[in-house]
Design a protein around this nucleic acid. Structure first.
Length: 799
RNA sequence: GCCGGAGUGGCGGAAUUGGUAGACGCGCACGACUCAAAAUCGUGUACCGCAAGGUGUGAGGGUUCGAUUCCCUCCUCCGGCACCA
């Protein structure tokens, strides 16, 4: 055995041995106790893996190794999300076809992952740009089409001028493109949509059954945005039309004094025909860009239509106004103005001098007229000036009035959602082609399954122009005419890459099977994913799409579970001076120097030791020496065989370490698990070495965290096979207990002393001994009012 | 504005149900080894104070014998939603 810990030769040696022995290949059929641990797969960009990647992938690998030692048949696959902009942009820049660059990048990344020492089963890897994979992306589209969940519609869509393609609602963050930060524009275009809205309620209900961070569930709930309210129908004086207003606060309807409709509203359009003021207001409002609208702030503008709606409750005439603060796309595009209890309505009323009525008593009992915005902001209280609702709490009143209006036929209870249908078409080359063809009349037809994979043509300049570059392909046109007949044309858009990643969890299990998406028995056995790990930025994108697609697939009868990911964990983000690491920003820190110098194991240990996995943090390498010293110390004590006799101290320390490491890794708190192992090593150091049995147990504890080093230790201890195949140690609770304990003594809540006592000391003895302590006696002159003994911990005296 | 999460030494962070705040590690200081440096090992290290002691977990209150932990008010940071009716 070499005297010094030489990480690079040890790591190369064990990576080779694992590979030769196919140590991490899983037989999906034979596994008895399946555990599917999945980490969100990466884009195979040309850049080398940075520190952020190591964090994201090496830590879940340690968790998977831990579960494997727990006796689970762990499936921990890795694949590549290869379609999409990073690969395509790289191709545009270099002129190399994405197909080739992707292949190269994937090979390089696999080598890097191997150097990390991950237990991926490479025999089951996948790549979304592979025809064997995207055949299923297209198959999914066909199933959505067959089941009426895919449709084509003209309407305003989000268009990113940077990426030159349409985006889904989820991909617009703060008005900007999630990928490239360009300001997103609204454009009227005909696009393919998937009906996510049909699943709004089920997407909400499903959240109750899955073990996800509350934060993420909350984000999805916000995104889906369920609202319950009532559509109140108002008659219009001197008109046969009606205006329907959506509100969640019908309790305040006795305070309604006007109605406001959106510029896009049908009635507004009608009025505009003979009313010049309204017409010009509408034109100006509709032509406003999002930016102009934002600059305007909350200042209210509007135009009076000259018409009045009748409030059935009060028989009051309410003027109907047009204003752009009412959104055409939300609710019914019309609101009833209750200026006393809604901030926007109040602002509007002030601007145009409309009547304000108080219908809720303020918390301080104030029932005076409402004249300031502060009075409006209060939301809770008791009803007033509201006829039969007077004296009721607003919540009770809400129910009462809804019943009343429904009974009279004035209104209809309604539930609305914020969630929109998913725009799946993209005007980009590098994606999965939508498997649709158009007949000579322009009617869409699905490409029959037998023609899948519907191959991406290669005779295309893939530079984006705003329309799909695939339209240039002669080959595709000819292919369509040959199969379907003269005058038939292909759909030339590709699918959002989030479609590719919405079902990959099933394809890992299919092992390339081209007959079914996933074999039924395998699906039943392995799904849902037991542990899914990835960043929180996907909360309202990938994680909603994957849930929606899985629910649809269950409805179609292809899979057994409606939820894809039973447990979800978000790793923290590793930043560099506060900014997310990325190649494009040029702030990615390479782990190579550290790995060369200290080894993959030490680097992995450091990633975990920095803090809880959920927290991430700003990159700083100052602490890496500490874990490196630890690895060296372990090597020195175990490999160089500093033997010593088994002792009570060692056994106790080891059992404490087992307990702590087990509990901490279970909740992915690797930092404290490692510190527990360090503490044990410090005890060994003091004892002058370690006994053979403890060394074996310790090596097992180290195995998930520093996999290569642990194998080397295992071998040096004369053991056969891989330590990673060993069973995780258990501790003996009896051995954790020591004979004596330290009891602290408090006087008036302040610690004044401590004493050693036997574990089974009685309460009376403990208190007596506590009082006898020199330093304590000093503080307890006079009457003792209270004596408290917390078993095995402390004595508290009050004087 | 609304909904989440978080604020602890010089730094990363510990403290699962209220029970000795600061584990573990970095850094720093001193010492040993060395001609010297690195590496390694040892000792110390929240703050104020010579000490006795006092003060300390974003700020201020409260409950309790005892609060980083529970309750109230406020501040700051991060994430999400937002003229959404």
């Amino acid at each position: 055995m070499p005297a010094e810990y030489d990480s690079s030769s040890i790591e190369a040696k064990w990576q080779k041995k694992w590979e030769e022995a196919k140590a991490f290949e899983v037989d999906l059929n034979k596994s008895k106790d399946p555990y599917y641990c999945l980490v969100m797969f990466p884009y195979p960009s040309g850049a080398k893996l940075h520190v952020g990647h190591w964090y994201m992938y090496s830590v879940p690998d340690s968790y998977s190794r831990f579960m494997k030692m727990q006796g689970k048949d762990v499936f921990h696959p890795m694949g590549f999300d290869a379609f999409g902009l990073p690969a395509e942009n790289y191709a545009i820049k270099t002129g190399v076809h994405p197909n080739e660059s992707i292949k190269e990048n994937v090979d390089v990344m696999i080598e890097q992952f191997k150097r990390m020492g991950c237990m991926y089963d490479w025999s089951k890897s996948l790549n979304t740009s592979d025809p064997a994979y995207y055949r299923w992306t297209q198959w999914l589209f066909l199933k959505m089409f067959e089941n009426d969940l895919a449709y084509k519609k003209e309407g305003d869509v989000n268009y990113c001028p940077g990426c030159k393609t349409v985006l889904a609602n989820e991909q617009v963050w703060d008005g900007k493109c999630e990928r490239c930060d360009s300001l997103v524009e609204q454009k009227p275009l005909t696009q393919w949509y998937w009906k996510t809205t049909k699943y709004s309620q089920r997407l909400l209900d499903g959240l109750e059954k899955i073990d996800w961070p509350e934060k993420t569930k909350m984000m999805q709930m916000n995104w889906i945005g369920k609202k319950q309210g009532i559509n109140i129908s108002y008659d219009i004086e001197e008109s046969d039309d009606k205006i329907v207003c959506f509100t969640t606060r019908p309790d305040t309807n006795f305070g309604a004094t006007f109605v406001v409709i959106a510029p896009e509203h049908e009635f507004a359009q009608k009025v505009a025909k003979d009313n010049k003021d309204v017409a010009s207001y509408i034109e100006a409002a509709i032509n406003k860009t999002e930016l102009e609208r934002q600059e305007e702030g909350r200042k209210k503008t509007g135009a009076f239509t000259g018409f009045y709606a009748i409030n059935q409750l009060t028989k009051k005439k309410m003027p109907i106004w047009v204003s752009d603060f009412v959104l055409g796309g939300f609710g019914t595009g019309a609101v009833v103005g209750v200026p006393g209890h809604d901030v926007r309505d109040f602002e509007f009323a002030q601007e145009f001098d409309l009547e304000v009525i108080r219908v809720v008593v303020a918390s301080d009992g104030d029932t005076s007229e409402i004249t300031s915005i502060e009075q409006v902001q209060e939301a809770e209280g008791t009803m007033i000036n509201s006829d039969f609702l007077d004296g009721m709490d607003i919540h009770e009143a809400t129910q009462k009035i809804m019943d009343h209006m429904a009974e009279k036929g004035w209104g209809e209870r309604i539930t609305t959602y914020r969630l929109r249908d998913w725009t799946v078409s993209r005007q980009r080359y590098w994606g999965s082609l939508i498997p649709i063809v158009y007949d000579p009349d322009g009617k869409p037809h699905p490409v029959p399954e037998e023609h899948l994979p519907w191959l991406l043509p290669t005779d295309v300049e893939f530079k984006p122009t705003g329309t799909s570059p695939i339209a240039q392909s002669k080959e595709l046109k000819e292919r369509v005419e040959k199969i379907f007949g003269k005058g038939w044309t292909p759909e030339v858009d590709t699918m959002d890459t989030f479609v590719c990643s919405s079902f990959y969890q099933f394809r890992f299990l299919a092992e390339g099977n081209q007959k079914e998406l996933v074999p039924k028995d395998i699906d039943k056995k392995w799904m849902p994913v037991d542990m899914y790990i990835g960043g929180p930025e996907h909360a309202c994108m990938h994680l909603i799409y994957a849930r929606f697609v899985t629910m649809a697939l269950k409805d179609f009868g292809f899979v057994a579970n409606a939820e894809p990911f039973q447990k979800l964990f978000h790793q923290g983000l590793i930043t560099n001076k506060g900014a997310k690491m990325s190649k494009s920003k040029g702030n990615a820190v390479s782990p190579d120097d550290f790995v060369n110098k200290y080894g993959s194991d030490a680097f992995r240990l450091y990633m975990m030791f920095m803090g809880p996995f959920s927290e991430g943090g700003d990159w700083n390498d100052t602490g890496i020496k500490g874990v490196c010293r630890f690895a060296q110390k372990v090597y020195k004590i175990i490999v160089q065989n500093k033997k010593c006799e088994q002792s009570k101290e060692l056994t106790t320390a080891l059992n404490i370490a087992i307990k702590k490491a087990t509990e901490d890794i279970e909740r992915l708190h690797f930092n404290t698990a490692i510190s527990a192992l360090m503490e044990f090593m410090n005890v060994c150091d003091k004892q002058g070495g370690i006994d053979a049995e403890s060394a074996k147990t310790f090596t097992k504890l180290l195995a998930p965290l520093a996999p290569h080093l642990a194998e080397e230790l295992w071998e040096s201890l004369g053991e056969k096979g891989f330590v990673i195949n060993q069973k995780w140690p258990t501790y003996d609770p009896k051995l954790i207990k020591t004979d004596t304990i330290t009891i602290a003594v408090q006087v008036n809540g302040k610690v004044r002393g401590e004493f050693e006592a036997s574990v089974d000391i009685s309460e009376a003895d403990a208190i007596t001994q506590a009082k006898e302590l020199q330093n304590v006696a000093k503080f307890i002159e006079g009457d003792i009012k209270k004596e408290i003994y917390v078993k095995g911990k402390l004595v508290s005296l009050v004087v």
